[in-house]
Design a protein around this nucleic acid. Structure first.
Lengths: 205, 205
DNA sequence: GTCTATAATTCGATAGAC
DNA sequence: GTCTATCGAATTATAGAC
């Protein structure tokens, strides 16, 4: 939730290639990406790409690892803070992720597609699981819902309400007849509304 | 919301190939799919696939068109029914889509990925837009929210809460430590809960 | 209609000069 | 480190026999 690694503009050749790879992979997915496109985007030669990263797959793994880290950076400090209210945490999570996704709208669809395409590669360390399940945040959700609602459902809703519009943006823009500016305004409004909606879910019934 | 075209088991060779193509395309995406895989899945030869459908892309277009239709079948009759309440419509939409997605969980991620990869190909007829915007359902959402809430936000939420868990299921199963059976139980529960949550959103604030 | 064999192309990766 | 040129594998598509 702090600094944005995806925006560092390093000038070394290796970094130039990685940034080009991130851009092309994220836009087209692993299978549809040609290493030639990455080389062109980076303004270097195809051979040089293999010189630096040995193979398409190794380059992909590095880029993807950094993408995942990007999404988790700062999350722990929010989830495990024992001095803030649940509502405060929800506001922080939603607001920070919407800010991030407005800068990198292709990220979630890309990551979820690649996880589905290769679940074993992302057979994540138990850490990702415990990060959520052992957190103070999770306890707060459980307590606030007090047996009336499965906390997992609330987690799904927070993430879904936040992330889904970016995943479906081409569709939403079309059926909702929205241009980029209007879409962006909707996302800004959601930063305010999602915590209110979630709060309602925790009290309903 | 009625019959399920994806489940028709036609015995003609053309249909066998189409069903195999749907299965492989949906699982792996267009770029990662090899026509050889489709042929093998269909139990026929690679040459025969081209004999029937001329090219990988033409076969894909046909399958995708049917997939999209599948998602819209029966929707019009719900959206334009002037005799049912808004809550009743929401229940019908959510329940029917969750039922469909439990049978075809890969469908949304596949379709949204391919739309993003090739937005021009899906430059849909104005029909898809007006189907929603001119509907009685949309009027009801607008009225019920009475200026306090943008109806588009509510639409996003209905679809997002319904579809997102299927898009993110590999991730959810991992971080939530859920097996398929538990995941399925959550989705069943959401059929009941989503209309309640949406109802809360329409009254809040 | 269905098959085997192969042409034609694309793409990841490497050899080798500078 | 960086380039040009090319190899070799994979893949779509087709030719031609049955």
């Amino acid at each position: 939730m702090t600094k944005n690694k995806l925006e560092i503009t390093d000038t070394t050749t290796g970094e130039k290639i990685k940034e080009a790879a991130r851009k092309v992979f994220t836009k087209k997915g692993y299978a549809a990406t040609r290493t030639r496109d990455i080389a062109e985007e980076a303004g270097i030669n195809l051979a040089l790409l293999n010189y630096y990263f040995r193979s398409k797959e190794k380059l992909f793994d590095i880029v993807m690892r950094e993408n995942m880290q990007q999404l988790l950076i700062g999350l722990r400090s929010v989830l495990y803070n024992e001095t803030t209210t649940l509502l405060h945490k929800i506001k922080a999570i939603v607001s920070n992720y919407i800010n991030l996704l407005r800068k990198h709208p292709d990220l979630p669809l890309f990551i979820l597609s690649e996880i589905k395409a290769n679940p074993d590669k992302f057979a994540m360390n138990i850490g990702a699981r415990t990060l959520l399940l052992k957190s103070h945040f999770f306890k707060q959700v459980k307590e606030t819902g007090k047996g009336k609602i499965n906390p997992i459902q609330i987690i799904i809703n927070i993430i879904g309400l936040t992330v889904f519009p970016f995943i479906a943006s081409p569709l939403l823009k079309h059926v909702g007849d929205l241009n980029q500016k209007e879409f962006d305004a909707l996302m800004k409004e959601r930063k305010k509304m999602i915590p209110i909606w979630i709060n309602g879910m925790l009290k309903v019934k």
